[in-house]
Design a binder for these strands. Structure first.
Length: 811
RNA sequence: GGUCCGGUGGUCUAGUGGUAUGACGUCGCCUUGACGUGGCGAAGAUCGUGAGUUCAAUUCUCAUCCGGACCACCA
């Protein structure tokens, strides 16, 4: 080691940029596919959606995962830590349209996909750079993007396999559509919105009598699709009407009044009318009244068709106005009551969703709820309560997974249909990835009817159909080690997408391989603004991590990310970054101090065998304790608790106490036995501290390592060094002695403080009162240390069993 | 409406069946040879509210209030 090279001040910006390059050039984090000795630890890294820049929430949760990855690497695992980007969804379409100033709808699908791929190629490096900048130790050569060939192939393979096993089916069934985006949407894409509406009370005539019946509805426009009217069987008001028919206004349709226990007697008039489809409740009602045929008045584009009669060509909003108008004319509208109610909207655009029966592709999984709940219970959840969210979601599932999306961009559904008999022609796995719009099936003739003309499926797959395959996608990047990588060890992700990504990935893995895709899950919280609110562009409270890195450092951001317990949301406070910087500066200075003294002697003079002084053994044992605690915490994904232990060891025990305890010994110019003992301790502890900090603040620890220990330890990077092990001295009594010593020094410091004395002021004499004889004997052994550290000339020891304190010092 | 999480000094936070951790802030002292973007020290919370279990509860149970999240939702 050479102390000359150690700069007085730490320059985080230069250093961090230097090591991003260094790590990349030296492939420090490369997954070693040939290494069969080390156990693999595989991580199913979340692929961020390519859109603009990395946000603060990313830097928060990815840092947390990275701490675990770095820890596992130091623990001797062959860490499989890929990095991908998600770019086959709507966000990407919007990004491409904006960047290239084009409209997807006006292009051929193949052409648009090509453009997307090309544009993403241009944008991606800059985007990924942000993740490198926070010091992510992923192997960026293990890279995928959810729209590339590799992923399209795997996603289509998955489709074909599940089709063949009968899980994927094309069905005519009611689905949710967004009339604005003109596509099918899934349960998970819904968002609640409270909206103002009217409850329209509509009067209908009971056939064969002069009586009328009034029902209330928020969807009067669906009157042409009315298929039933129900009352509660116990409702005295309407009991006698059950079985009778009513004549609907405007359409003249004859509808029977049926009993239905689900009807709420107290809502509206107690009479409900059902349409195909006004909402979830209509679909459920139909499942209870199977003899009724639906009247599909709406097409998949959200426009009323000829079955809606004179309302053909309108959308719901226009039809509503018109129908209300017509009902008024006919005198059938009793009243309109303003109400506020919660409606399901499309989360992307806020449009009210509609229900339409069409042909779509589904994965049927409602029969698997129990099995999925069991599978979820087998995962090792961190924190454990996050499992409730998955359970909740599975129990509440009502819909099969609708896979088809009417979008221009995405992974094409690998299917054609026979022109003559509509038979499904599924692609051959050998030809994947394909686009049925451009490619032809390998099959020359329809096996059913012999026709040789095929119509391509135009729809693409739901983006989650692909991202639910990330464990397989990543593992197949290293096909020769596939079985060692998949199932993976860890899925890290944030809690908001448990019902999307986590659940869907489990479903796929269960359906394909009958296993869970990973052993452990690690659920991060969210980064909130300083007031604890979600950050959003519209609120203008977005904090850019890039600026914070610029102003503070990536280490400081990571330090902040390590502050919260796993799963907890954390609000961003700039002070925390300052605290992080403070730690870095302290670590820098302490290391500088240690190294400047360690360079005075040769390595073989400061081996741990040379440690014999009580306070040195005390320091070693304190370190052992904290190593054990930190290791245990990290094994359980509790990075914040681990960080706290390491910080306590470093700040409190090492800097505030130990370094002060040994100064009087190491400033001795002679290399005495006692000084060697101290230097050996310094040498051991500072390195352990550095390595333990390395997963949290990888840049500064690397710089210190490169400037000092590299010459001895030989590893190219501190991140390739081993995680420290406890080094028992076999002398536990020193722990007690050292702790007593700390108390004595604290009292001396207090005394000097109260008397406005500098700490280096010499004190003539002190008396130390111990409670027991044993303690007095312990202290006798370190009298010289007390004199040296406290700068005291004379010390007398007494035993006083009566006193309350363990130690009492008088001056 | 269901489920879950949280409510600890001025602020944020740790934690535990025996009155509490740290950070920031505040105040005082110290220009000590790693560090003034420093060091040392001090003040400051009875752990949301009520009840119960217990020798003992901030920690367990129940109720209640207040935040927050996820899910569901009514024609």
């Amino acid at each position: 080691m050479d102390a000359e090279d150690f700069p007085k001040k730490y320059n985080s910006k230069e250093t961090e940029e230097k090591y991003i390059k260094y790590w990349q050039e030296n492939k420090i984090y490369k997954f070693d596919k040939k290494d069969t000795k080390k156990k693999i630890y595989s991580i199913d890294t979340p692929p961020p959606t390519v859109s603009g820049k990395m946000h603060l929430g990313h830097s928060f949760s990815y840092s947390q995962t990275d701490m675990i990855a770095r820890y596992k690497r130091m623990k001797g695992f062959n860490v499989f830590y890929p990095f991908g980007t998600d770019d086959n969804g709507l966000a990407t379409i919007m990004l491409i349209e904006k960047t290239k100033k084009i409209r997807a709808n006006k292009m051929e699908r193949g052409e648009f996909i090509e453009l997307c791929l090309k544009t993403l190629e241009e944008l991606r490096p800059q985007y990924v750079q942000d993740w490198k900048r926070i010091g992510l130790s992923a192997d960026f050569d293990l890279f995928y993007t959810t729209i590339n060939e590799h992923c399209r192939k795997i996603s289509q393979e998955s489709f074909i396999d599940l089709y063949k096993s009968g899980r994927i089916k094309r069905k005519n069934s009611p689905i949710m559509i967004c009339p604005k985006c003109r596509t099918a949407i899934a349960q998970v894409e819904l968002e609640d919105a409270e909206k103002d509406s009217f409850l329209s009370h509509i009067k209908v005539q009971i056939i064969g009598t002069k009586e009328h019946l009034v029902f209330a509805t928020t969807r009067p426009e669906l009157l042409p699709a009315c298929i039933g009217i129900s009352v509660h069987p116990d409702d005295q008001k309407y009991k006698d009407l059950i079985g009778k028919y009513v004549k609907m206004p405007l359409t003249g349709a004859k509808i029977q009044i049926t009993p239905d226990e689900e009807t709420d007697m107290n809502y509206g008039t107690g009479v409900v009318y059902y349409c195909s489809y006004g909402g979830m409740e209509c679909i459920e009602w139909m499942s209870r009244h199977t003899d009724v045929e639906p009247i599909n008045v709406m097409d998949v584009n959200g426009i009323y068709n000829s079955k809606a009669g004179k309302y053909e060509g309108l959308n719901s909003i226009k039809a509503r106005t018109q129908i209300i108008e017509d009902l008024k004319k006919d005198g059938c509208l009793v009243k309109q009551e303003p109400i506020k109610h919660i409606v399901n909207t499309h989360e992307r655009c806020g449009t009210d969703i509609e229900f339409v029966a069409t042909e779509q592709w589904f994965i049927e999984y409602l029969d698997l709820k129990d099995r999925l709940l069991e599978a979820g219970a087998k995962l090792n959840w961190n924190p454990s309560h996050m499992r409730n969210r998955l359970d909740n979601w599975i129990k509440g599932l009502k819909w099969d997974w609708c896979l088809s999306r009417q979008k221009k961009f995405g992974v094409p559904i690998p299917v054609w249909y026979c022109k003559k008999c509509s038979e499904v022609i599924i692609a051959d796995k050998k030809q994947l990835p394909i686009d049925p719009l451009e490619d032809k099936p390998l099959l020359k003739k329809c096996q059913k009817c012999g026709c040789n003309e095929f119509l391509p499926e135009k729809d693409v797959l739901d983006t989650w159909a692909t991202s639910s395959m990330t464990p397989q996608i990543a593992a197949k990047l290293v096909p020769e080690r596939y079985n060692d990588i998949y199932p993976m060890d860890l899925r890290p992700q944030a809690h908001d997408i448990i019902s999307f990504w986590l659940f869907n990935t489990m479903v796929k893995s269960q359906l394909h391989n009958n296993i869970n895709p990973w052993k452990d899950v690690m659920i991060s919280g969210w980064a909130l603004d300083p007031k604890g609110k979600k950050m959003s562009k519209s609120k203008g409270n977005v904090i850019e991590p890039q600026k914070m890195i610029e102003n503070y450092s990536a280490d400081a951001i990571r330090y902040w990310a390590a502050k919260s317990k796993l799963g907890d949301d954390v609000s961003f406070k700039e002070e925390d970054l300052r605290t992080g910087m403070k730690l870095c500066i302290k670590l820098w200075n302490a290391s500088k101090f240690c190294i400047s003294h360690l360079t005075e002697c040769k390595q073989d003079e400061i081996k741990t065998d040379n440690i014999y002084e009580i306070l040195d053994i005390w320091m070693m044992e304190k370190t052992n304790q904290q190593i054990e605690k930190a290791t245990n915490y990290l094994d359980n994904y509790q990075y914040s608790a681990a960080k706290k232990e390491i910080e306590f060891l470093f700040f409190n025990t090492f800097c505030d106490n130990y370094l002060e305890f040994i100064k009087y010994r190491i400033y001795n110019e002679e290399l005495t036995k006692s000084k060697k003992s101290a230097l050996a301790t310094l040498n051991s502890v500072i390195f352990d501290v550095l390595t333990m900090f390395a997963p949290f603040i990888p840049f500064i620890t690397e710089e210190i390592y490169q400037l000092s220990f590299k010459q001895i330890k030989k590893e190219k990077s501190i991140h390739l060094c081993s995680w420290p092990k406890s080094k028992p001295t076999g002398d536990k009594q020193c722990l007690r002695t050292g702790d007593l010593f700390c108390e004595i020094i604290a009292q001396i410091r207090q005394y000097k403080n109260k008397n406005n004395l500098s700490l280096k002021t010499q004190i003539k004499q002190i008396k130390i009162f111990l409670k027991t004889k044993e303690e007095k004997e312990l202290i006798e052994k370190i009298i010289e240390d007390i004199k040296g550290v406290g700068i005291v000339e004379k010390i007398s020891l007494y035993v006083n069993e009566q006193q309350e304190e363990n130690i009492f010092v008088t001056f």
